[in-house]
Amino acid sequence: MFIIDLNYIVPLDELDVHMADHVKYLRKYYRKNIFVASGRKVPRTGGIILALADDAATMNKIICEDPFYKYELAEFTVIEFLTSQYHPDLKTFLER
Results as ranks from 00 to 15, higher is better:
V36Y: 04
G46M: 02
P43R: 10
V23P: 01
I4Y: 01
L50E: 07
V17C: 05
D5L: 12
G46Y: 02
N7L: 12
I62V: 15
I62A: 04
N7Y: 07
A53N: 06
R31M: 07
P43C: 12
H22D: 03
D5N: 13
L52T: 13
R31G: 06
N60W: 05
F2N: 03
D5S: 14
N7Q: 15
T45Y: 01
F2T: 03
P43K: 11
L6H: 02
R44F: 04
T58I: 09
H18Q: 11
N60V: 10
P11K: 13
A53F: 00
L52D: 10
A56G: 07
R40I: 06
P11N: 13
L15R: 10
I63D: 01
G47V: 05
H18F: 13
S38I: 04
T58W: 00
E14S: 14
V42E: 12
L15P: 03
Y29F: 13
R27W: 00
M1I: 13
G39D: 06
N7D: 13
V42F: 10
I4A: 01
M59T: 02
G47F: 02
F2W: 05
K28W: 00
V17I: 15
K28I: 08
A20F: 06
G46E: 04
I63C: 05
N7G: 10
G39L: 03
H22Y: 03
P43H: 12
P11W: 09
V10Q: 14
K41P: 07
H22R: 06
D13Q: 14
T58C: 07
E14N: 14
A53T: 03
A20Y: 09
I49H: 01
R27Y: 01
M19N: 10
K28F: 02
N33G: 09
I4G: 00
Y30C: 03
R40Q: 13
D54L: 03
L50H: 07
A37V: 08
I4T: 03
V17E: 11
D5W: 06
Y29S: 05
D13Y: 12
T45N: 10
A57C: 10
P11L: 11
V36C: 05
R31P: 02
I4E: 00
V42M: 04
I4R: 01
H22N: 04
A51M: 04
T45L: 08
M59E: 01
K41Y: 04
F35I: 08
K24V: 08
D55T: 09
V23K: 11
D16Y: 14
G39E: 04
G46T: 08
L50C: 12
Y29H: 09
V36R: 06
G46C: 08
H18W: 06
N7T: 15
R31W: 02
A37P: 08
M59D: 01
